[in-house]
Amino acid sequence: MAGKDTKQPETQGSGAGGLGEALSGFVGSQVERLAEKASDKLTDLTGQLTDVADNGGSLLKIGSRILGGESPVKAFLSEKAKGLKDSVVDKAKGLFGGGKRKSGSSKSMNIIEVLDVGVPLRTAYDYWTQYEKFSSFTKGVRSVSMSDEMTSDWKVKVGPSSRSFKATVQEQIPDDRIAWTSEGAKGSTKGAVSFHELAPTLTRIVLVVEYYPSGLFEKTGNLWRAQGRRMRLDFKHFQRYVTLTEEEPEGWRGEIRDGEVVMSHDEALEEEEAAQAEDSENDGEYEATEDENGEAEDEEDEDVAEDEEEGGVEEDEWEDEEADDDGEERSR
């Protein structure tokens, strides 16, 4: 019994010691985990504070808020929210052109339209060159005034407001094509229109435009292709006007190449009149030649007729002589 009593306390003592060691190890590991989490949170907080400072915030501002009576958490969140707001505003300015627009930073919109008009090629071209009449049959153009043979001032309707821009013709070849550029406060364009004869009274018109919007409203409208729809509708209005109007067009017949007028309207008309006069002379000479050829053929026909008559008389006389000879022989 005594041996058992002395042995049992030793067993209990060793078990208590092992439990203590295990408990000590568990507590130590938990302390290390908490320390690591605290370190991570401190690092994250330091990084956030650094971001706030980089985005326009300042640790001094946070400190001044704390000294003013705000809690550290509230001071930090206030500065963080302010930095986020500034970032969003800067991105919005870059998207909608709130600051100065960098060259090439604006996204362009391509507009391509094709229409067939039931009029001759020259008629369709001459109607297109009458820019000052565009406001009478379109809804997007309010007024057009010509500055000179190459430049014109346009006022167009964009939603509820108006926009102005100056257009400059870079190339213009009569009855073929017109290419231009335009500049305005709220956008710029590059465009070309070409004319193609399908039949004597049928012309195809191809319109190609690159539109570079600038400004909040224009860029918002660009997202909905508002400008493209407006141009498409006005193009159809041009088709209707050209097809149904009874007015004779007085188009500009000059020629522009590389941004310079190489032939004025009056010079082009004089050249056309000279070409028409030359064609008329050639036609007159051709008709006169035909008349001379006709007269010559008539004279030849008369000569042939006379020869045939003379030949007929000789033949009759020869027949009479043969008859007389026959009668003499028979009488003998």
Results as ranks from 00 to 15, higher is better:
V304A: 14
G311N: 07
E79M: 09
A75I: 09
Y127G: 01
E314V: 08
K41V: 12
V208P: 00
G140C: 07
D175R: 06
N55M: 08
S105M: 03
G3I: 03
E248N: 11
E149N: 08
S87M: 08
M150I: 13
E218A: 15
Y241K: 03
H237R: 14
P120H: 08
M150L: 14
L269V: 05
L244G: 06
G20F: 14
R232V: 10
K4S: 15
N293P: 00
E328S: 08
D258C: 07
L269I: 06
D320V: 03
Y127V: 00
D324C: 01
G13P: 00
E299V: 04
A179D: 13
A22W: 05
E255K: 15
D44A: 14
G259Y: 05
L198W: 05
R257F: 03
F235T: 10
E149M: 04
V208L: 04
G99V: 07
E36I: 06
D298Y: 04
S214C: 02
T46W: 09
D258W: 08
T220L: 15
E210I: 00
T129N: 01
G83W: 00
V119P: 02
S147M: 11
K133H: 11
E183T: 11
R177T: 03
S78T: 13
D126C: 04
I173A: 03
R332Y: 08
E210L: 08
D153R: 07
L49F: 06
K85R: 10
L59H: 02
M263A: 14
R65Q: 15
E290C: 02
W154V: 00
P249L: 06
S105A: 13
E292R: 12
G294N: 10
R232K: 15
K41A: 13
K4R: 13
T201S: 11
S71A: 10
K157W: 06
E281K: 15
A81E: 15
E250G: 10
K80Y: 10
Q170Y: 01
D116T: 13
Y241Q: 11
G98D: 11
S58G: 10
Q130K: 05
V73L: 07
D148E: 12
G98R: 04
I111Y: 04
K236F: 12
L244I: 02
V117W: 01
E328C: 00
E281G: 07
T129E: 02
T201K: 13
R230E: 12
L233S: 14
V158T: 05
L84E: 12
E297G: 04
A277W: 03
V117A: 09
Q8F: 13
R204A: 07
D298T: 06
S162F: 12
F238V: 04
L95E: 11
T46E: 05
E278C: 02
S280I: 09
A92G: 09
W252V: 00
V242H: 06
L269E: 06
L67F: 05
E295C: 00
T151V: 00
Q8P: 03
S108H: 06
G17R: 13
I173K: 13
G68W: 10
A179Q: 13
